[in-house]
C-alpha cells in the first residue's frame, strides 16, 4: 500500500528533523554544560582542566561533528552520557520509561473514558439541564492547571478524606491520583471535539432517516453516530499525545514519582544536554508513531478515505 509507505517515510523524516533541530537548539543554549557542572569555585578546576573535560565529553569539536557522533550513537543504541550523574543516558531512560509509560497509558485511557462519558451525557442526556451542565465541563477542565489539580487532589483525597495513603501506598494506589491529574486536561479537549463531532453527525440527514426506521437512542449512538464521530476525535487524540509528555513532567514532579518527566525536569535544571536530547527524540518518536497509527487507522474507520488513498 503506497499510502502507508509514504506516511511511514514521512514519519521517519519528522524524527530525523526533530533530532537535528533539537540538537542544534540545545547547542545554541548560552554557556555550556561543562561550565555549569564543573566551573563552580569549590571544585577549583583550572581552565586547562575544564578544556580537558571538554575533550573527554567531546564538546570542543565542531557542531557538525558532534551531531554526527550523536546521531550514529543513537542508531547503535548509545544515547550518550549524562553530564550530571555520569551514567549512560540509555540506562537512565530504561529505568524511568516503564513508570512513565504506565502513567501515560493509564492517563490516556482514563481521559478517553472520561471524554466519552462527558460527551455521551452532554449530547444524549435525558434532561436539558444535564446536557447543558456536561457541555460546560470541558471548558472548565481545560482551564485547570495540572499542578494545581494535582495538589488539590492530593490535599482532598489523601490528607482530608484519607482515601488514598500517601506513605506506603501500593503501586496501584500510588497511580490513582497521578493518572487522574494527567487525564483531566487531556479529557477536556477530547470531550469538546467529541461533543462537536456528535452534534455534527446528529444533524446529518441519515440520522433522521435512521430514526424514521424506528431506531432508539442506543441504536443511534452505537451504530450510527459512534463511528462517524470517532474520526475527528481520533485525530485530536493523536495531537494530544504531546500534552501527555508535558503533563508527565508536572505530574511526576508534584507526586514525586520517578519517570521520564522527572528526569526531564532535572535535566533542564542541570542543563544536562545529552539527557534532554534523548528525551526530546524519544518523545518525538512516540508522538510520530501514535500519529502514524492514527493516520493508518483512519481509512479503516471511514471508507471514503480508502478511495482518496488509492487515487
Amino acid at each position: 500500500m503506497p499510502y502507508a509507505l509514504r506516511r511511514t517515510a514521512q514519519a521517519g523524516l519528522v524524527v530525523i528533523a526533530t533530532f537535528v533541530v533539537a540538537f542544534l537548539l540545545l547547542q545554541a543554549l548560552p554557556g555550556d554544560a561543562i561550565v555549569a557542572r564543573y566551573a563552580s569555585p569549590e571544585l577549583g578546576l583550572t581552565d586547562a582542566q575544564l578544556d580537558e573535560l571538554r575533550t573527554v565529553y567531546g564538546t570542543d569539536r565542531p557542531v557538525w561533528e558532534q551531531l554526527w557522533a550523536s546521531a550514529t550513537g543513537f542508531l547503535t543504541g548509545d544515547l550518550g552520557t549524562s553530564l550530571q550523574s555520569g551514567a549512560a543516558v540509555e540506562t537512565l531512560l530504561a529505568a524511568a520509561l516503564p513508570s512513565t509509560l504506565t502513567l501515560a497509558a493509564l492517563g490516556f485511557l482514563a481521559a478517553v473514558a472520561l471524554a466519552v462519558a462527558i460527551a455521551a451525557v452532554a449530547t444524549f442526556g435525558r434532561a436539558e439541564w444535564l446536557r447543558r451542565a456536561f457541555r460546560s465541563l470541558p471548558p472548565l477542565f481545560v482551564s485547570i492547571p495540572v499542578f494545581w489539580l494535582g495538589i488539590v487532589l492530593l490535599q482532598v483525597l489523601s490528607f482530608q478524606l484519607g482515601l488514598i495513603p500517601v506513605i506506603n501506598a501500593s503501586p496501584a494506589q500510588a497511580l490513582v491520583l497521578p493518572v487522574l491529574t494527567i487525564a483531566v486536561p487531556i479529557a477536556a479537549p477530547l470531550a469538546q471535539v467529541l461533543i462537536r463531532a456528535i452534534d455534527d453527525t446528529v444533524a446529518e440527514p441519515f440520522i433522521a432517516v435512521a430514526r424514521a426506521r424506528g431506531a432508539g437512542t442506543r441504536w443511534l449512538l452505537g451504530r450510527e453516530v459512534a463511528r462517524n464521530a470517532a474520526l475527528p476525535t481520533l485525530t485530536i487524540a493523536g495531537v494530544l499525545f504531546g500534552e501527555l509528555v508535558a503533563g508527565a513532567v508536572v505530574t511526576e514532579t508534584v507526586f514525586a514519582r520517578t519517570g521520564v518527566g522527572r528526569l526531564t525536569q532535572e535535566a533542564v535544571a542541570n542543563r544536562d544536554i545529552p539527557v534532554l536530547q534523548a528525551v526530546v527524540v524519544i518523545s518525538a518518536i512516540g508522538f510520530v508513531l501514535i500519529n502514524l497509527a492514527v493516520d493508518l487507522a483512519a481509512p479503516a474507520i471511514d471508507p471514503r478515505l480508502r478511495r482518496a488513498v488509492h487515487a
Partner: peptide
Amino acid sequence: ALVPQDPGTSLNPVQ
C-alpha cells in the same frame, strides 16, 4: 416508512 430527500446525505457514509 420514509424515503428521504437527498440520497447523498441520507445514508450513513461509514456503513
